[in-house]
Simulated scan of single mutants.
Amino acid sequence: MYDRLRVAADAFDRTIGWHRVGFLASLAVIAAAAVVLWHTLQGIDTDEVIHALRGFSWRDIGLAAGFVAAGYFTLTFYDEFALHTIGRSEVPYRVAALAGFTSYAVGHNVGASAFTGGAVRYRVYSMHGLSAIEVAKVCFIAGFTFWLGNATVLGLGITWAPEAASSINQVPAWINRTLAIITLIVLATYVGWVWRTPRVIGRSNWEVTLPGGPLTLLQIGIGIVDLGCCAAAMYMLVPHEPYIGFVTVAVIFVAATLLGFASHSPGGLGVFDAAMLVALMQYDKEQLLAGLLLFRLLYYLVPFALALAILGCRELWLGMRRARGGAPAQPGPESADHRPG
């Protein structure tokens, strides 16, 4: 049965191509979001949006910014965890923090984060002796951490508040809750699978030993904290009335983020916003739109500008070192033996 499925998948890839399906699916998501956004924003009063922006308290903005900063700080541990997983724990945390922050800040804004974020990571890690395959492994483990966190948050959140997911996919709440419980069962099964014995995936020189049971729980915990911080930032920026619980907003936020991620549009632009506006229709549209604009400023634009400044200054510094006859570009400004420093 497995061989037949593999043969069918290979034949489909040769004749049509999975990349074409993915591209068309992304276009379909973006087109649908554009239509929804167009209809949703009909009648929006720009003056009221500006008034709503001015109405935000500095306390709410400060708390949202703090949660965003905490979220990006947590993102650095995606890379730190991945480096330990592939056996490169000698790479200093500051390098993992630089690669993690800048790759996600750039990838979130440019889109196609698997490629753009991977390119940034390679530029940083190659200066410290990591090969292209090792960087690919880091990207894989970091991405896996992200998806484990998303699956856990959505599984727990939708089990608790299935109507939150129904506001986006228009599926009956009991179906969403059933799917969420199945997701949690699959996650528990996976944790039990890696707990029993070391699991290796891949082949030839591209093999990754998956984290064991305790480390997988840590991996899931990192993803939960990251998503929790991001959802808390968004929660501080939605209108206070009518009251909606944090879990409901968090489920909607994570689902909307995943839709934006699936579209590959820069920052999920249009897709994320349409999903949030549709799912939170009970809020005043102008006030909710103002909150979404502030969130984009805090979570996307400010970190993006900071990441570009950091990467630009780093490249300038490396160029000046080479011009002065300093250390060569490989393995980089750190010592070649990769000792933590």
Rank of each mutant, 00 (worst) to 15 (best):
V7R: 15
D10P: 06
I16T: 08
A32M: 11
V35M: 08
T40C: 05
T40P: 06
T46F: 15
D47P: 06
V49D: 02
R59F: 15
I61C: 00
A64F: 02
F67D: 05
F67C: 03
V68P: 02
Y72C: 01
P92M: 09
Y93K: 05
Y93T: 01
V95R: 00
V95M: 06
A99L: 04
Y104T: 04
A105K: 05
G111H: 04
G111T: 06
F115W: 10
V124S: 03
G129P: 00
L130H: 00
E134G: 02
L148E: 02
G149K: 13
N150C: 04
A151L: 07
P162T: 13
A165W: 10
N169C: 09
P172C: 08
A180E: 03
V191H: 04
S204V: 13
P214W: 15
T216A: 00
L217A: 02
Q219P: 11
I220R: 11
G223I: 01
I224M: 09
V225D: 00
L227V: 02
G228R: 12
C229P: 09
Y235A: 02
V238E: 14
A250I: 00
G260R: 09
F261A: 08
A262E: 11
G267K: 03
G270D: 13
V271N: 04
V271L: 06
F272W: 08
L277K: 08
V278F: 12
V278H: 13
M281W: 14
G291D: 06
L292I: 04
L301G: 05
L308R: 05
W317D: 12
G319I: 00
M320E: 15
R321G: 13
R321S: 13
R322P: 10
A323V: 04
P328S: 01
D337N: 08
